[in-house]
Each structure stands twice: as structure tokens, then as C-alpha cells.
Amino acid sequence: MTETRMNSSIIQSFKHFLHYYQASNLPCGLIIAHAALDQKGIHSLITHLEKEEPATAFQVNYDTEHHILGLLLDDCDLGYTHFYALHVKDFLEEKDRLMGEMVVGNFPENSDHAEQMLSRMINEMMIEQTNKQEIRVFDNETIQKTDKKSVLIVDHDNSIVHLLTNYLQRKGYIVHAATDGKHGLEQYQNLLPDLVITEINLSGIGGYQFINQIKNIDKQTKGHSEIMVLTNKQLEEDIKRTFEYGAAEYITKPFSLIELEARIKRLVEVTE
């Protein structure tokens, strides 16, 4: 269930807008709500909001699969986003459509990465589904408190990705995967996983650059992810360089799943 969370249509449809706000450093507000709506409902919501707050430009998207309503407000601060969310809540409650909580967030007040914030807001909502019909302000730290650890696997070899994904999912990790360096970085930026397992032989950008960029992202977001290298490269030179770049583990292929899991446990659970 949680593995599919990245596929929310809201993320897809807001991606480019958020990218734009972030790049041009413009503020924007995000509201998501757990609600059951149909095409007509969305329509009347839009007319309702246009009547109540005619001066604000907004985007609406509804994720029919997960029943999440997403709103993107142009050029506003957190206070106004919250105020606006009250309108939305009024409307939903009146129609008895609200199924759970609502989360509001603002770029740049809640997070300095708009896209990341949205995917985390949605993640949180889907992991801790409560029935409390309340508006909650997004807290940048909350995701760290969930006890499921997330792992990002980057390897050009599909069979390795499949094997690790299945194995680690069964062991209770939340697993994401990418098959090249560029895609891997994008994923990393949006997810900030607890652990990254990567090959050095990547395409697009090489493994060293990939690790380097992760460290740069970490610096910006003040986050931290452990990096484990799982590679075909067996040269001492590579091992040395990898540790210099800040990786925590170096495992060469062929590898043992048991050993790998033990090392993962040590990395992500002891550091808490």
C-alpha cells in the first residue's frame, strides 16, 4: 500500500508548478485533504472557492485512487493558506465529504523544497490515516518519527533492483528504486530516505558524482541519509574513494542478502 504512494496524481500535476515556484523563489500554499469527491463535487468546490476568495489563483487536483484532494495556492503565506483551508473545510463538512484530516503547508515557510514538502504531506496523510477532522500544519520533522525505514536503491541492473526491493519490503522497509543516477537523485530529493543503496557503475551521472550530490542535498536540507555502496567494483582505490566521499558501507557483488540486511540494520537502527 505505502509503496505506491509516490504515484499520486497530485504530485504529477503540481510538479511543474512547484518546480517553478521553487526556481523563482515565489511563495505558495499547499492544502491536502482526505475527502471523497466526484467530478461534480470538485466543480462545485471550485465555484465555491472562487466566490469566497476571488482574488486568489489556485490549482485543484483530485487523486481518485487515494481519495486525496490537493490545492495549490498562488503567492500567499502560511497564515493565509490556513485561512483558505478553513473555507475548504467548511465546504467539505457541509457536504459531509471530509474523511480525515487536512494538512496545510507553505513554501518557503514550512520547507525550503516545495516538491519534497508535497510528497511528504501526502505520505504522512496516507501512513497515519486518522479520523480526526482537523486542519494540521505540516511539520518538517514529523516524517522522521515514523518507525518504518525507507530505502532508495539505485542500480542499473533490473534483477538486482527487483531482488532487493522484494526482499527489503518483506522485511518491513519502504523501498524506492531508480535505475540511473539522474533519476536516483530526483527520487532522493523528493523522498529523503533513511538509506541509499547504490552501485558505482551508473549511467547518466557516475556513482561518485551521485554520492557527492546526495551529500550536497543533505547539507542544504540539514538531513542525513546513510549511503551504502553495493557494487561490482573491487578495486582498493574505489573503496578508499567511496569512504572519502562519505559512504558508510562498501559491499561488493556477488553479495549475501543476510549480510546485507544485517549491515542495513546496523546502519539505520543504531543511528537513531
Binding site: G204, I205, G206, Q234, L235
Partner: peptide, 11 residues
């Protein structure tokens, strides 16, 4: 150059 640096080769 980026793709050459990322070639799969030991050294």
C-alpha cells in the same frame, strides 16, 4: 565527458 566518466570500467 559525463558518459565517459560513468563508463563501467575498473580504472
Amino acid at each position: 565527458v559525463q558518459s565517459l566518466l560513468a563508463l563501467h570500467y575498473p580504472a
